[in-house]
Design a protein around this nucleic acid. Structure first.
Lengths: 155, 155
DNA sequence: GATCCTATACTCGGATAGGCTATGTCCGAGTCACCAGGG
DNA sequence: CCCTGGTGACTCGGACATAGCCTATCCGAGTATAGGATC
């Protein structure tokens, strides 16, 4: 999985707390990551419609929906793509004993198992929203740090 | 995910049906894949202890355990490695508002969610054994093809 | 004092290089089976 | 007829190139703001 997913999730959490647009450069400084590369991830979030970009001075990124309506899966798929990790190449239809296409009416059992696992993974990520993450972060982070973060974003 | 996982699973299914050692070259011909690269995957299975290699004439690979005791997860981890897809870089401890290490007693919520999803994925793969795959393949494949496969392996 | 215009600085977006893992390939070391020769 | 030694071919195992994707970067197009001049 792409490492940018982690950054994207952290950014969503931060954006949820800030009521005003936050520039990509400020998010990068806050997380101490490459500004250029983070910009790429934010562009992916923008293409997926999760965040909205505002140009010009005092511009930046804002969430388009309430954090409670953005699942972790949304962010993961926006950055890593929605293609399943396993891709069946239909080995049954290859080689000297290739099963003809008309016989291949049922999906390959291996692909079925992999798809099932992939669905379980997605379901697990779909069950958690960014709002849940925000709540958890607020519970485990000192209040002082949170207010410092607010101040940092407004500066 | 590595594409070789699919080959490895197909090979385990085939090996389960053949009572005698099967050379890597024959498995590659049966599945119409690169012999050299399939050899690499089989070596990974061998290192993981899932299959046992026999050298010399009429040698090849054999399963070390009954197919009912080999889970799909075993094969996946043998080939792709057992490292989780998501790697937490502890963003909290970076940047100008870095939380000191002594405050970071609870794991990052994002990592927690990702680990949970990863566990769900693994659990789903652990619930299916190679024997289940063999059963399913036997149910959806013409009996003639199966006997042809037996003959092909013995030739 | 209010309004309009201009210049500025700041924003995002897409096009552009580099590094690393996954893919694909090759050849050598080791081993078992077979066969010929001898007892 | 049985045993033994040698030969041969076949097997796996690890070391070696290649390609595609992830990582990282840069500069240009566009825009909201701030300030100043004008009415």
């Amino acid at each position: 999985m792409s490492g940018g997913v982690e950054w994207g999730l952290h950014c969503c959490v931060v954006l949820s707390g800030a009521g005003e647009p936050v520039p990509a450069a400020k998010l990068a400084e806050l997380h101490d990551v490459s500004p250029s590369y983070l910009a790429k991830q934010l562009q992916l979030l923008s293409r997926a419609g999760l965040v909205r970009s505002t140009l010009g001075q005092s511009g930046g990124y804002v969430l388009t929906r309430p954090a409670s309506e953005i699942t972790v899966l949304d962010v993961v798929e926006a950055i890593d793509g929605a293609v399943p990790a396993f891709r069946c190449t239909e080995v049954r239809q290859r080689g000297p004993l290739a099963t003809p296409v008309e016989e291949c009416t049922t999906p390959c059992p291996i692909a079925r198992v992999m798809d099932s696992a992939d669905n379980a993974w997605r379901q697990s990520l779909r069950a958690v929203t960014v709002a849940d993450l925000v709540s958890e972060v607020g519970r485990t982070t000192p209040a002082e740090t949170l207010s410092l973060a607010r101040a940092f974003l407004r500066s």
